[in-house]
Design a protein around this nucleic acid. Structure first.
Lengths: 128, 128
DNA sequence: TGACACTCTTACGTAAAAGTCAAATAATCG
DNA sequence: CGATTATTTGACTTTTACGTAAGAGTGTCA
């Protein structure tokens, strides 16, 4: 496990631009440390980037990703805040279950598409 | 099964605006018929809207949704096109499986968040 | 017949999420 | 050390997916 990654290392690993990483920092999603003016990304920052990109793949906005990420941080001491987090986590989980169902449905439809195409191909081979 | 739906009926059913439905038509995703200038949506159009919104929930762009929807149409007669569709369907399915894995991972993390919060709440009750 | 709800087209506006470019530093390698 | 490569900030631009507003037509109920 490396101590630090440069910005370009991460852009290459994840296939994103430096602009994107700086944008995520501006948005408060990551907080790389500095040596002089240069950003140094720690393993924890790298993990956050992974989680951000995962959120993006699932269609979450930056604001939503920020909210989800903040839930991962150490639970605060106040009862009200804990209850809020529990409620929000429950909402997101419900949303994710809906997305999972959407995926299952779409997968089933695409399998049908493939079968239909294969069937048509078979027909064509017989006919020709 | 109704013959036709008005634009407003669909906006109410799906919680979207007329602008959105007209936009989807401009984008070639749906093709409601006309009585004069007025759009009439058939059950098939309504189903398409459902599929579009499902695609949106999964984070697909309009262009991607258009591509997916076009795969659902009757398979063409040409072998090359059939192969292209099969390949594209396979790609999308792989992508969907990735998204499903992303969902499982995020769900697991959110469950941990909830447990941590519940644990912290229990501590607070004991301590207080 | 007039009010009201619904619909149409056209056009400009906007928020999110970066892309792109410039000019200035900083780091590294032969 | 000098050349090259990487990084920084800042500003402007772009794309997507609609929102919003104007101005006009259509339907229908009281």
């Amino acid at each position: 496990m490396r101590d630090y990654y440069t910005i370009t290392e991460l852009t290459r690993e994840f296939g994103i631009s430096t602009r994107t990483l700086r944008f995520y920092e501006d948005e408060g999603l990551i907080h790389p440390v500095r040596r002089g003016r240069t950003r140094l990304f720690r393993p924890a920052d790298r993990l956050l980037v992974k989680q951000i990109l995962r959120g993006k793949r699932l269609g979450f906005s930056i604001a939503e990703i920020r909210e989800i990420i903040q839930m991962y941080k150490a639970p605060p001491g106040e009862v009200g805040q804990l209850r809020t987090i529990i409620a929000k986590a429950a909402e997101r989980r419900e949303e994710l279950r809906q997305k999972r169902k959407d995926i299952e449905d779409t997968l089933a439809e695409l399998e049908q598409v493939e079968e239909a195409c294969l069937g048509r191909l078979a027909e064509l081979r017989v006919t020709s």
